[in-house]
Amino acid sequence: MRAYTAHARAAALSALAYRGNFLMSLGGVAFQLIALLAVWKVLLGGAGTRIGGFDWPHMRSYLLVAFASGALVGTFVDFRMAWRIKSGLVALDLVKPVDYQRARLWEAIGGVWIEIAVIAVVATVSMLFSGVPELPPGPELALFATSMLLLIPLKFIIVYFSTLACFWTQNDVGILWARQAVTGLLSGALVPLAYFPGWLATAAQWSPFAGLTSTPALIFVGQASGGHALLLVGVQLAWVIVLWYAARALFSRALRQLTVHGG
């Protein structure tokens, strides 16, 4: 365990050392929050206006959760991993007496506390201007907290899974953009899944991407409660387990593609 916590500490120090890049990536998510708040304020700001089950107070709370989920486990993780694969430095990672996948997870965890601090600052400023959201009742609040905790390994494993493609291609930027486009849409970060066509909303809700935004956000705003909320959190946990072992299988295949030249 000490070896993995050392990876987490090193990742946190690296994030602080390159805080400009780190803060710029989080700034992009914060700008998205401001833009979406402005758009939805126009659409739902009128008294009694409700679209797809959302009025303005619910949408405001939903977007705050979407911002928090988008800021957690940022792009710093995949850039570092992709660069080490492309440069061949991954060979040094493979000879270390630690599990490669778990070490990358702990590196992601290392930056989470910094991301939480930035989330708290941005959310506080946002609430000063738009108001404090109403918290869900006790059981749903506990499920919301559980969902946010599960979001960390789920988002990591999706990022990790996609970045393994760098063993087959050098186009890591294209992979990053493709993943962001898919997750931004199917997670409900840009538009709640309730606004999707019926078949697409159902498919997205049962996909792993819903656990990145839609699941915790719906629980927080009260559109998922009781057994329904528990089911969504269970699906979130199931995807963490399935994708974790699927990524291990893909990593085993990826190692067959690895050729490192040097002396």
Rank of each mutant, 00 (worst) to 15 (best):
P216S: 07
G70F: 02
K86F: 04
L64K: 02
Q223E: 14
G74P: 08
I116N: 12
A178C: 08
P97E: 12
S61N: 12
A120G: 11
L36E: 08
A142V: 15
V112D: 08
V260F: 03
F167I: 05
Q180D: 15
R179T: 06
A189D: 04
R102V: 13
A142Y: 05
L94Q: 07
F22K: 03
G53L: 09
L176Y: 09
L237K: 00
T163P: 03
Q180W: 06
P139R: 01
S147F: 01
M127N: 01
A11S: 15
L43N: 03
Q257V: 04
H7I: 04
G110S: 11
S130F: 14
R50H: 09
Q180L: 10
F167H: 09
H261D: 05
T215V: 15
W206I: 15
V173F: 02
I157G: 03
F220W: 15
P208C: 09
I119Q: 04
S147V: 02
L16T: 12
S214P: 00
G138P: 06
G188V: 07
R102Y: 00
E115W: 01
I157C: 03
P139T: 05
W83H: 13
I109Y: 10
L13Q: 12
A238C: 10
K86H: 13
I219D: 10
A3Y: 02
R179V: 02
A117E: 06
V73F: 07
C166H: 01
W206Q: 10
L105A: 09
A15H: 09
L143P: 07
Q223A: 12
V240I: 13
L231P: 00
P139C: 07
W239C: 10
A247Y: 00
I51K: 09
L92N: 13
L149A: 15
L218M: 14
F220H: 14
A68E: 09
R253Q: 13
R253Y: 10
V233C: 11
I157N: 01
R50N: 13
V73H: 02
R253L: 15
A103R: 00
G74F: 00
P197R: 03
V77T: 10
P216A: 09
A123D: 09
T124L: 15
T146N: 02
Q170F: 13
S69E: 11
G45E: 04
A11N: 08
F196P: 13
G53S: 08
L230K: 02
A142H: 03
Y18E: 11
I158K: 01
V182H: 02
D55F: 03
R2N: 11
L23D: 03
V90T: 01
T169A: 07
P197G: 10
A6M: 12
V260P: 04
E140C: 06
R2T: 12
A8K: 00
L37K: 05
L186S: 05
A120H: 05
V242G: 07
L255Y: 00
L250G: 06
R248P: 03
A224L: 15
A229M: 08
F79A: 10
L151Y: 02
D93P: 04
V77C: 05
M1K: 04
R256S: 14
L232N: 10
L258D: 06
W113C: 12
A66F: 08
N171Y: 09
S187Q: 10
A123T: 15
V235L: 14
W168E: 10
L128K: 08
Y62V: 11
G70R: 01
W106Y: 15
L258G: 08
S252L: 11
L13Y: 06
L150T: 07
V29F: 05
L186K: 01
V121Q: 03
N171P: 00
Y4C: 04
G111T: 15
L135W: 09
